[in-house]
């Protein structure tokens, strides 16, 4: 009985540790980062489409999230993180790391530029998305593989 409990405890600890480690792996970190960018995009698009009222705080927060996340994003692709955990990262990232970095930084720079001009109404948010949006597809076209 004691042995069983001990084994169970060990197994459980192992599982829990496994979960902690997995969340820290670059594959998981970058997936979460992309989800954050997607969330920020969604918040802005809601305003642009008129589904949500214009809210300067939301616009600022979303653009800041995009800028910060995009700039830190290329650091999450160390050697050894090419595969595993259902990563959809294309091997081309490591073949063209400079171009990949440039694309991520451009998203950051575009978000910064929009933030500096601060879109003041629904139409301006829509126009801002026209600037920012193509970065998403432009990078995913080359550097993401859908499984």
């Amino acid at each position: 009985m004691k042995l069983k409990t001990a084994l169970f405890a060990i197994a459980f600890t192992g599982l829990a540790m496994g979960a902690v480690t997995a969340a820290d792996e670059p594959q998981m970190v970058r997936q979460e980062m992309m989800k954050k960018v997607g969330g920020a995009m969604g918040a802005l698009a809601g305003i642009a489409k008129g589904e949500k009222p214009y809210d300067a705080a939301v616009v600022t927060a979303s653009l800041t999230t995009m800028s910060e996340t995009a700039k830190a994003f290329p650091d999450q692709f160390p050697a050894g993180s090419e595969t595993g955990m259902d990563t959809e990262a294309s091997p081309k990232i490591w073949e063209n790391m400079e171009d990949f970095k440039a694309k991520a930084l451009k998203l950051g720079a575009d978000a910064d530029a929009v933030l500096a001009a601060m879109p003041a109404d629904q139409a301006a948010v829509g126009a801002a998305l026209g600037t920012i949006g193509p970065n998403c597809g432009g990078c995913h076209e080359v550097y993401r593989l859908k499984k």
Partner: peptide, 15 residues
């Protein structure tokens, strides 16, 4: 727009 309902974006040849 190239965005899914979850605001993931279009990728690959579909771009």
């Amino acid at each position: 727009t190239g965005f899914t309902p979850e605001f993931d974006s279009v990728g690959g040849s579909m771009v």
